[in-house]
Design a protein around this nucleic acid. Structure first.
Lengths: 203, 203, 203, 203
DNA sequence: CATGAATGAGGTTTCATTCAT
DNA sequence: GATGAATGAAACCTCATTCAT
């Protein structure tokens, strides 16, 4: 580190953040980012391999935090004694924790989940949905075995995961801010849970 | 019409269709489309005003059919005697009719609803959701008045509309074909309806 | 002539007139002209050789009338007994006649004299100036011989012609209409004549 | 600056200069300029924002010099005691200074004043005329008040300014070189002054 | 660390003109 | 007389990326 202490790199990331958020990955221009950062293209390519790498510097961190939080959530489930699977999957405390992360980096997550086309993250939402689906799968098995629920096929399992992820994304994009999202969250979870109960035939 | 009888225009639309579907509106290249159609750029601009116009030639027709079908659905509701609003909104027959259209032009609708960024249709999904929301609003009022349901705010009304549209889109993008979608449709509608009932507090 | 009686050709000329006047020769688009005339390009090329030819159809007539009027003016001079050359050259009656023609086809002459770049008429103003110069030359000789005026070189002769033509063009482009031009004409002629007298050293 | 020391930019400006001068702004082709300069289009757009900016690089400097010189001329007038307005307006020393500038960048000024259509400078001549008119207006008021001259309306004031600017442009375009222009300048000024005197009714 | 010059392919669009029918 | 499809070159401009210094 020189005296500048990563100043340039930070300026670049900051400029990239605002450009990416404003225009999305594909329509963002590296030239424009460099101009905003008052830095030359050469500098950019010293710190970052390419456009994707720069994008990573903006959204990678938040994504890691999210992954970690989701990971914890899943670990808790795995360890705990599951009495009511849907209660676990749509646990309010964990849901709140996740929403908290999403809003901590609101712009980054909206960017990542809705404007990442063309980047290596363009399928990130599918990855998240895939993870959620594995959980529903777990619960589906337990429910079937222990509670004699209907057998739910992979299609609907994926659907449930999809709707859940979309619902969180919906709260993120349609709330005025963290507070409104938190206020509406229980209502949304109630809706999701009712759907889940119906799908699993637990009514 | 010459002896060629619109051959070139058709070749152009066909080439555009495949290019747009493959790359999305924004990443599609007119040059590449012309090459595929074995035609010069001048010819393209003889038949189409610009890129948007060409896109319209690909997705405009299907969209009209969809609009017409949705229009009929809404008209039927308006005329009928609404005894059970959720039954009406998520009517199976109408749902099937809509799915039928979606699958009739599967690629076009996926293009339109997920890869139209940069075109004049980039907000088409929001338009559809907006229309659905107006209906939910109507039903919300009736439910409140006649059945003493909970008052549901705009936020959740929009949410319901959003989830419904996304669910149809989900069936479109995740089914192997029309048949699987039709098979799963009732299950999805059941899920949606259960959510609706919960949100309106009718349990 | 068919029953249409040159209808198409006239429509074409009319459309061309307005397009050329609005955008000038170079920026006018034949496609746009055809659209205005509700006629196809093929038709245009049946009646006119090329863009220049169409331009000719718009400005050629007025230009002929102007040439004729100037010709008469010159012939009158040639025949008459020249007592006061400047009086003749800047004769009020003839000047008015010319202004009359200019305003009869005001738009066409402005087009021809200021927006003909790229066409075969792009140097028309120089041609007119050249003609005027020949006259000044004639008068210069007479003045020198008969009145002992200063010898005026070709440079100033051309200048005088230039200023004169520009002055008429000025009246054409800067007057609100024929009437204002006619009102101001004497003042302009007075100015020109004073300049001429000074240049010829007749004060 | 690299070792090449602005070589490319200079080559670009040089090529642009000759292309613009030869074909005028509108008909000049950036491609052709790049070819002449043996440089790629990307390089051009590294140094210049767009076609207008490149044009500016060719004519902007000369125009500034001209503006400065005219500015000085006007300041001198404003400070001095005006005894004979026409003498001031058509002062020989200042006129010479202006002609000197015009010939210093002869090609650039001809380009700017006669072939700039389509560029941001397309109305530059009108701007110059407007400035001159303000002066004539000033003098007209003084003349009227102090010397009891005729009241001259805006139309003729604008005309005088127009003729004056055109006369300088005439000298620029029709002289073989600086020397001939300087030789003829007094004669032209004499002509202008005589016209002015007549128009102001000071004979 | 960082500069900034340069690449070169690619983007969409417009144009005057031709010609078989 | 007139259609309208088609040409093909050219227009201006933007982009991510590279590299010698």
């Amino acid at each position: 580190m020189t005296a500048k202490d990563g100043e340039t790199k930070l300026a670049l990331i900051k400029a990239a953040r605002s450009e990416f958020i404003e225009k999305g990955f594909m329509n963002a221009s590296l030239r424009s980012i460099c101009k905003k950062a008052e830095v030359t293209t050469g500098a950019l390519y010293f710190f970052f391999k390419d456009k994707d790498d720069l994008f990573d510097a903006v959204v990678g961190g938040p994504l890691c935090e999210l992954d970690a939080t989701i990971g914890e959530h899943l670990r808790r489930e795995a360890e705990g004694d599951i009495s009511d699977p849907l209660d676990e999957t749509l646990d309010m405390d964990d849901s709140k924790r996740i929403m908290e992360i999403l809003f901590k980096y609101k712009d980054e997550f909206i960017l990542l989940l809705t404007k990442a086309q063309g980047s290596k993250y363009e399928n990130i939402k599918d990855r998240l949905i895939g993870e959620m689906q594995q959980h529903y799968k777990l619960f589906a098995d337990i429910l079937e075995e222990r509670f004699g629920s209907k057998k739910v096929d992979g299609f609907m399992l994926h659907y449930l995961a999809h709707v859940q992820v979309d619902s969180f994304l919906y709260l993120l994009t349609h709330s005025k801010g963290r507070d409104e999202a938190m206020k509406e969250l229980p209502e949304v979870v109630k809706n999701l849970r009712a759907g889940g109960i119906a799908t699993f035939g637990l009514s």
